[in-house]
Every structure is written in structure tokens, then in C-alpha cells.
Nucleic acid binder design. Structure first.
Length: 422
RNA sequence: GGAGAGAUGGCAGAGUGGUCGAAUGCGGUGGUCUUGAAAACCAUUGAGGGUCACACCUCCGGGGGUUCGAAUCCCUCUCUCUCCGCCA
């Protein structure tokens, strides 16, 4: 949710920024500012009426105390009209607040200056490309065939016990998963992130906090009996840890990492994109979440990008970094870098990480603040990224590192797998 | 699943109809003292809205009600804790 104070002062800038998303928001921003104006007017009136009413009440109290019953009774008469007026004003205030909130919540984050305009993936900017994209030898296979042949991932068993999109990992496939999780966590810890193990289910409030609710309600699994949601990413519980907190300046920046299973209904996505590990209902991911002072968030974004790039390099995977265009940007993000690894057999890029700076968009909703030197509370900036999502990494590892002897485990990972060849 | 207790400021914990945004203690901050520190003492210390700044308004788990007036009374919801049962 954008800050109303920001809109008051930067209406034109905001509208220009939102245009990069292909959104003409000029009118709705004007509407919001108008509502804001009305609301404040109304509140002024209401406050005055309340002040008056408070004053009279106090007087009545004192009159009773000094035994002047009659005067007190007559003072009571005066309040009835005032009470009516207060009730009216309060109802108006409620309505104004609601519509203001509703309109405000409907606006996506304003992209920062460096975000290119554009409508779709095609307009994303390739920032850099790393590693060799080598042609695979004759007879090379897509990951799902390798996984099936070597009994690493049992899609059939997943279907049997749960359903499509819930694979069973077996033998070296399971050990590879565990190794990757450990590898990512250890690397993140080395980079200064603190490890957390969050709940895999969250309440409604947390869903609202990070913005999954109410918009993406259908994307989460919902346990109706207890009204809990299975997390689509560790971002949700981790960021919500800090909801409604005022953090001490010297605890910043917050750098958190967590492994979690992630659950996504992926309603409406079918076709070849869902083949193998490309898209699942349950998958593993190690996430990083940061909270910084406003002035530090862009530097933190760079640090995160660099760190994630390092992970992919250690896995010896060819990858590229994209700066998403306005139209491809998530609702809450001000700037996002996507990491894509090359799927050698499918001959296409697969997204494995998305690193974003949300500025105050999330923290405004969650009221995550800190107290600066001037003693005033101020909203923090939040950032997060995958470091990394496993399934597509596994797909890329199997495909890119396949050879006549089997699949080669990258050096950096061998300490975690305990084997060199799959 | 059964029974009970509770939800107040960073924490602990008073407050049962009026000057209570809320005693007290701890913690935090500033100061006095000290070579320095500790201790002691003094002062200060919730959040949000509003304002150029004040004034002023709102908030004692959420919602509703009674009343001139509610942290305090009533209704309702949510959550937490304790005991018993079951169980990894």
C-alpha cells in the first residue's frame, strides 16, 4: 500500500511511474487525494465536536461533585444534539476511511526510475549473462527423463498419494534436495543472514500483511476448519515476524533466511510449462528477507543480487539477470531482478529467483518501523528474494551437467551430497 | 476433547463509572556524582491522526451496547495461559 503522505507530495511522479506498468492512474490518484482532503476536513469537525462533548462531560462531573445537581441536569440537555452530530460525523469518517483505504490498496507500487516501461516479458531488460551455454551432445535428455530413469523423482508416486504437482523425491534425488537446502542455507548464513524456521501455515492477518490476501486468495491452500493458509513462500511468515514492530536502529539491517516448503495452487496453469519440475504445487525454497533503513535499501538490493549470482556460479549453471519492466513487475514491487538458469534440454530460461525491493509498500501495510535519531518512527524498506528455489535448479543441474557417466555434481555441492555423480 | 483463568504502555503489574493516556517497579534515554565504571539521586520515556508549530482528537485484544461521561458495567467474537484427557 502506497503511503498517503507520499501521494500528497508526489502525485505527478507517482502517476508517471505507474504509467510504466501500463496503468493510467492519474484519475484514481486525484480521487484519492480528494478523499484524503475530505477525510481530514471531516476529522477536524469531528475532533472539535468531540472536544466540546468531552468538555461538557467533565463539567457535569465537577458539578455533581460539588453537589450542583440541577446545573448538571441542564448541562446534560445540551449534549443530545451534539451526540447526534458526532454520530453523523463518525459515520462519515468511517465511510471516507474505507473508500480511501480501498482505493489506496488497489494501487500497485510505483516503479523506481531505472525500471523500463513495458507490457510483458518481452520488454524485460537483460542486465547480464554468465556461464557457457553449451550445446548438449546427441542423446541428451530433459530432466524429467533423467529423473525417471535414475529414480530420483517419482512423479507417479506423488500422483498416487497426493496428486499432480506433488512429486516424491527418492534416493539420490532426495539427498540432492537436502544437500541443496543445506548448501543454500550455509551460504546465506556465511553472507550474514540469520536462519529462521517459520511455521508453514499462517493466519489471515499474515496473509494480508504481505499482500497475498485478499487479491491472490485463490493461489493459496486454505485449511478451512482452522482458517489457516499454507504458505506460498517463506516470505510470508518471515516478514510478518516484524509486523507491528518498531525496531531499534542498531538492529538494522535485518537479514533473515529460511528454508521452507512452499505451497501454490497454481490455479489455471496447464500445458507444457508444467512439465516435470517446471511448476509444482509443493516445492522447496530457501528465501532471504531484508529490512533496511530507506536510504540503504538500494545498496541492499545490489548486495542480494550479487549474493544470489554467487550461488549460481558455485553451482556452475549458466544464468542471466533480468531487470523486469513495469508491466511484468509484481504488484508490490518497486524494482525486481529475475534470475533465470538455462535449461539445456528444454532450451529455454527458467526463473529461479526474483529479488525485489518493495520500499515501504509492504511495511506500510504491516507497520514495520524503526526509530531514527530524531526519535520519530519511520517505515522501513523491505526486500526479499529466493536463494534459491529448488525445482528448477534441480532441473538445470540434471540437464546441464549430464554426461556419459551420469550427472556430475558441482564441486561446491559435493560436500553436501556426499557423492560426485548421479 | 473437558474444566477454569486471563488479555492494560518495551516488559512486569495496579487500576471496577468522572481531572486516567493510565499508579508502581524494571528497562531505555539525558543529567548529577566519579579518573572511568557501577551504585545512588534527579529528569525524561507509548502509538496514530491533526497543525507551520501549538491546540485538539483517537487508541487499555476486536466489534457492538448502556451512560452526559467507560480501561472500569453489559453483549459478542478472537486469542493466550493453566489443569485434566489424548498424542508426536
Amino acid at each position: 500500500m502506497l503511503e498517503i503522505t507520499y501521494l500528497r507530495e508526489n502525485a505527478a511522479r507517482a502517476a508517471a511511474g505507474l504509467k510504466k506498468r501500463g496503468l493510467d492512474a492519474e484519475q484514481s490518484i486525484q480521487d484519492i487525494l480528494k478523499l484524503d482532503e475530505l477525510r481530514r476536513q471531516n476529522q477536524n469537525e469531528l475532533d472539535q465536536a468531540l472536544a466540546e462533548s468531552n468538555k461538557i462531560s467533565k463539567e457535569i462531573g465537577m458539578l455533581y461533585k460539588s453537589g450542583k445537581r440541577e446545573e448538571a441536569e441542564s448541562a446534560k440537555q445540551r449534549t443530545s444534539e451534539l451526540k447526534e452530530r458526532i454520530k453523523e460525523l463518525q459515520q462519515e469518517q468511517e465511510q471516507l476511511k474505507n473508500s480511501l483505504e480501498q482505493d489506496l490498496v488497489a494501487l500497485p507500487n510505483v516503479p523506481i526510475d531505472s525500471v523500463p516501461a513495458g507490457n510483458s516479458e518481452a520488454d524485460n531488460e537483460e542486465v547480464s549473462r554468465h556461464g557457457e551455454i553449451s550445446k548438449l551432445p546427441e542423446g541428451a535428455k530433459p530432466h524429467w527423463e533423467i529423473a525417471e530413469e535414475k529414480q530420483l523423482i517419482r512423479f507417479d508416486l506423488g500422483v498416487k498419494i497426493t496428486g499432480a504437482g506433488f512429486p516424491v523425491y527418492q534416493g539420490k534425488g532426495a539427498r540432492l534436495q537436502r544437500a541443496l537446502i543445506n548448501f543454500f542455507l550455509e551460504e546465506n548464513i556465511k553472507a550474514g543472514f540469520e536462519e529462521y524456521q517459520p511455521p508453514l501455515m499462517v493466519n489471515e492477518e499474515s496473509g494480508f500483511g504481505t499482500g497475498q490476501l485478499p487479491d491472490k486468495e485463490g493461489q493459496m491452500y486454505h485449511m478451512q476448519t482452522d482458517n489457516l493458509y499454507a504458505i506460498p513462500t517463506a516470505e510470508v511468515p518471515i516478514t510478518n515476524i516484524f509486523r507491528d514492530e518498531i525496531l531499534a536502529e542498531d538492529s538494522l539491517p535485518i537479514k533473515a533466511t529460511a528454508y521452507s516448503a512452499c505451497f501454490r495452487r497454481e490455479a489455471g496453469s496447464y500445458g507444457k510449462d508444467v512439465r516435470g519440475l517446471n511448476r509444482l504445487h509443493q516445492f522447496d525454497k530457501v528465501e532471504v528477507v531484508c529490512l533496511t533503513k530507506p536510504e540503504d535499501s538500494m545498496a541492499m538490493l545490489d548486495t542480494m543480487v550479487e549474493h544470489i549470482a554467487g550461488l549460481l556460479q558455485k553451482l556452475e549453471l549458466p544464468y542471466r539477470i533480468l531487470r523486469l519492466c513495469g508491466g511484468d513487475l509484481g504488484f508490490t514491487s518497486a524494482i525486481t531482478y529475475d534470475f533465470e538458469v538455462w535449461s539445456a534440454a528444454q532450451e529455454r530460461w527458467l526463473e529461479v529467483s526474483s529479488v525485489s525491493n518493495f520500499k515501504t509498500f509492504q511495511t506500510n501495510r504491516m507497520k514495520i518501523r524503526y526509530r531514527g535519531e530524531d526519535k520519530k518512527t519511520q517505515l522501513l524498506h523491505s526486500l526479499n528474494g529466493s536463494a534459491l528455489a529448488l525445482p528448477r535448479i534441480v532441473a538445470a543441474l540434471l540437464e546441464n551437467h549430464q554426461g556419459p557417466e551420469g550427472v556430475r555434481v558441482p564441486q561446491a555441492l559435493q560436500a553436501y551430497t556426499g557423492f560426485e555423480i548421479i
